[in-house]
Design a protein around this nucleic acid. Structure first.
Lengths: 182, 182
DNA sequence: GGTATATAGTTAGATAATCTAATTAAAAGG
DNA sequence: CCTTTTAATTAGATTATCTAACTATATACC
């Protein structure tokens, strides 16, 4: 699982540039009204975001599940007895019903979830975790949480406090703009 | 482009849970040695990361390009006269050579880049921006930067300062662990 | 110099995650 | 009872990846 960076250098290799040339590019190509300091900070956050998702991908790979599918399993775990229809799942995950159908197909084929027809309204399907699904979630979650936590390991205790306040603020702000909720 | 959240509620809708139930889940399912506060903070960062990429996707969509392809165009812009082979591009972007070939195919079909055979080593190909590619990058970048900047808009000036220090630290930390560089 | 190995790039074929549009079935509203 | 709406699925597409195989070329060594 550990991936080693190539150690030998090659004349064709593109050199590592770092942030500097990006800052220069921002100066020459951003439109007047956008703040260049914010653009730089936003770019750093964009890079960090990519890496954070990469870390989770890598840690979940050995379990044969992706983050988006685990998200659905966690959703079902948290909503417990409440019955979840494909439509409601699609709405919560911000995907189309067609996409939800695909995910549920995949999870059902592996016996992690089951579909049950509603008796009152025969158009509806209720999706729920199987025992196997619950066991699987219980096996994966410790890794999921430690993967989340691992990204914080170089921060000092007081930095974590401050970072939490800031991430919380940014989360609220971006959720408002995207009109999404969890 | 504006997407409206469904306003009517439905008995089948899954309620918005917020962070609380996730915190409880962490308490019951994280392995002893992982810090639960860090897991929570890491989860918030994971959510934020997802949204940050969503925002960029949405803003770039009207240009008919994705973030990963624009990344490649920016890479070529920054390396200017230096000749970039598909292998070097793959290495820098952290993808396989086969994936690089696909991306270059797509960009070449749209006349944004060209391939030129090396004269010294006939196995090698050099990829470079066309004039059309340079024009395109110049058109997209202002939106790219303002999209980056938009995520910062609710932070106070002093918060941005602190956030930059923290993101910088986290970036270094995660790049070290993933063994990647920019 | 000629064969074996390594390298650069592409191709073939697969999987995952999404989408839109069409289809099927059932319910609800006049 | 007919029409419209709703729920779910299917069909078919695109994008972004991957691994493994293949082609062409260069290098290395007896």
């Amino acid at each position: 699982m550990t991936k080693f960076k190539k150690m030998t250098t090659n004349e064709d290799d593109l050199p590592v540039l770092g942030l500097e040339p990006y800052i220069e590019l921002i100066q020459t190509t951003s439109s007047g009204n956008s703040d260049q300091e914010d653009a730089k900070l936003g770019l750093m956050l964009l890079w960090l975001s990519d890496y954070v998702l990469d870390v989770m991908d890598i840690e979940l790979a050995p379990f044969g599940i992706t983050e988006s599918k685990l998200d659905l399993l966690i959703l079902l775990t948290l909503h417990g007895e409440r019955r979840a229809t494909p439509s409601a799942i699609a709405e919560r995950l911000g995907i189309t019903r067609a996409s939800a159908t695909s995910m549920i197909d995949w999870l059902e084929k592996r016996n992690l979830v089951v579909r049950n027809h509603s008796k009152e309204d025969r158009r509806k399907i209720y999706v729920s975790l199987t025992d196997e699904g619950r066991t699987f979630v219980a096996e994966v979650l410790p890794t999921y949480w430690s993967s989340c936590a691992s990204n914080m390991m170089d921060l000092e205790p007081d930095e974590r406090k401050v970072f939490e306040k800031l991430v919380n603020k940014l989360l609220k702000s971006i959720q408002r703009r995207l009109e999404v909720e969890r």
